[in-house]
Amino acid sequence: MSAAEALAPAPPAARPRSRAWRRFRRHRLALFGAAAIVVMVIAAAAGPWLIPFDPLHIDLRHRFQPPAGGGHLFGTDQLGRDLLIRLLMAGRISLTIGFAAMTVSTAFGTVVGITAGYYGGALRIALMRFVDAVLCFPQIFLLLVLAAFIQPSIATLTLIIGATSWMEVARVVEGQVRSLRERDFILAAETLGASGRYVMFRELLPNAIGPIIVAATLTVARAILMEAYVSFLGYGIQPPMASWGNMLNNAQEYLASAPWLAIFPGAAITLAVASFNFVGDGLRDALDARLDLH
């Protein structure tokens, strides 16, 4: 048999990525969520340059302008600051914290999960017990305890939220790794003399990436919500800097007279959280590895 003959065309099959995209596209809500996220990110990043107001500029003559009043599309607040620009600035902070906390918690959760799943035995038991223990505390309680002791800033909030939301990822990764652990291709790497680190990060991690992405997306949603929560309770981002949470806090007093002060940040939080959740659900279906197996 000659070399040419074994070269017979391999059965054509869509690459996993394009198949995943096809499945994702079928998810209307996920598509909507993805579009909404893109719009929010662009708006938060570029918007402040396009809007001719300063988010901190106090203009007491134009307090409580209703939406579309006096050139302010979303109206103004009790100090006459433009609400739209504040909303966008707050969006920057909320989204930044959301993505950054997701990065922190995903990285940490992945390392914990992959270590537990790969090494197994007593190490796995210890690590997963720790995960369970952290999960036992209500996240918001942990968050408030930590926030009460630490000077709030974007960085510390990110760390605090990250530190209280990595457990989901750890669990997902641990389960995935444990199911892959005994597969022949892992054994193959070990018979090649691969180190634990090589097996974990080169062989196992790429196979767990789907569930990690899904969990990470959902974590962004949760982090945004958490930031809003903490800031709403006054432990988070401090005025005059705007965050969706502290804008809501601020709006409480004027609920009856200036409802738009609450409606816009509330809608922003809902939209952001829902969008990330929709995308997470869509990704969950699209990246379901089982659908890729023959």
């Binding site: 054994l187 193959a188 790497a189 090649l192 080169r202 990436i209």
Partner: peptide
């Protein structure tokens, strides 16, 4: 290995799979 489906990492290309021993050793 016996099972040609389970013994190759599904997320690696042929280049990476066949080159893995070199990458490791």
């Amino acid at each position: 290995f016996q099972d040609p489906f389970a013994s190759l990492n599904p997320r690696m290309t042929v280049r990476q799979i066949v080159g893995a021993p070199l990458a490791i050793q």
